[in-house]
């Protein structure tokens, strides 16, 4: 941090010299970052491009033609995947959508109301409650997974939709983000004015705070949606019946079977392609009106 406050050199000659050499240097500097970033982009897009191409190949083409040469089997692969065990794949997709969509919705509601309470009220135990809730971020899921399963089993909930849904609802990071958004977006004067008008606390939250927190809450929702959609450990431990599997677990079991029956590989590849497309499409669409920066708690002033 020592460089920030260096005194400016105001001699005219020095400034002119810097100015003269600057444009050339800058143009060169523009090439290097662009090239580095494009290399990074190529690396990140490689497997996605591959799965798009590979899903068009038939079983025979998969192992015989060049990696990035499109094949002729896309329609066959799609119908084979849909026919596999009476369309269980689409059931997995619906399950994933349910776990992630409904779970993220509940999660956002809990985060919103907790974040609002923590940001806009002064009360005894506020920081203690906040810190305890935040330790959830640090608690490794491993120590939770086994006892969660055993407790679910005792409650007769093992291998049920609820067993995957319930542990996904509390999102410490979501509460943290919601607290930041509430502190930044909800003006104290408006809350006070609503109180003077005789509005109840719950009504103030719903009609005053919630609407202005909404852009931030979209971020909490997306964050939690992705986290639940990508989760593997929890459903892997909780579920036994593959009718209730999310798509991650379904593809995993399909791949394990593929080790003994390579014909299933094309199904796995087509399934993987279809599984990643919804989220990629989602991010492509929403980035027009939603900034990635919000994910790390940046608040526009």
């Amino acid at each position: 941090m020592s460089v920030t406050a260096t005194p400016l050199d105001r001699r005219p000659g020095a400034t002119a010299a810097v100015r003269a050499s600057a444009p050339r240097r800058r143009r060169r500097a523009g090439l290097v970052p662009t090239a580095v970033l494009l290399l990074g982009a190529a690396y990140c897009l490689l497997p996605v491009a591959w799965v798009l191409v590979a899903s068009t190949k038939s079983s025979r083409e998969l192992f015989s033609t060049f990696t990035f040469l499109p094949g002729t089997g896309l329609a066959d692969n799609l119908s084979a995947l849909s026919a596999y065990r009476d369309g269980v794949y689409w059931r997995w997709m619906l399950n994933s959508l349910f776990y992630a969509g409904f779970g993220a919705l509940l999660s956002t509601a809990v985060s919103a109301i907790s974040g609002y309470a923590l940001a806009k009220y002064r009360f005894r135990g506020r920081e203690a409650i906040f810190n305890v809730l935040l330790t959830g971020v640090l608690m490794p899921p491993v120590i939770l997974a086994i006892p969660q399963y055993l407790l679910m089993a005792k409650a007769g909930l093992a291998d049920s939709y609820l067993s995957v849904l319930l542990p996904s609802v509390l999102a410490p990071y979501g509460i943290y983000l919601a607290r930041i958004y509430a502190a930044a977006a909800v003006p104290d004067e408006v809350v006070e004015a609503a109180r003077v008008d005789g509005a109840r606390e719950w009504r103030i939250f719903r009609t005053v705070a919630l609407p202005v927190m909404l852009p931030g809450l979209v971020t909490v929702f997306l964050f939690q949606f992705v986290a639940i959609w990508n989760n593997f450990l929890l459903p892997f431990i909780m579920l036994g019946d593959d009718e209730k599997f999310p798509v991650t677990l379904g593809l995993f079991t399909l791949l394990q079977q593929g080790a003994s029956a390579p014909a299933l590989y094309t199904l796995v590849i087509t399934g993987a392609m279809l599984a990643i497309m919804p989220l990629i499409a989602l991010f492509l669409v929403i980035q027009r009106f939603w900034s990635l920066d919000l994910l790390s708690g940046a608040v526009k002033s």
Binding site: T34, L37, L38, G40, A41, C44, L45, P47, V48, W50, V51, V226, W229, N230, N231, F232, T248, L249, L251, F252, L255, V268, A272, A275, I276, L279, I280, L282, F283, L284, Q287, L292
Partner: peptide
């Protein structure tokens, strides 16, 4: 570039390992 490099975030770890 920013979006492309961020994109793997939307791919589940299990599917990434598979690809």
């Amino acid at each position: 570039s920013r979006l492309a490099i961020f994109l793997p975030y939307a791919v589940p770890g299990v599917v990434a390992a598979l690809l």
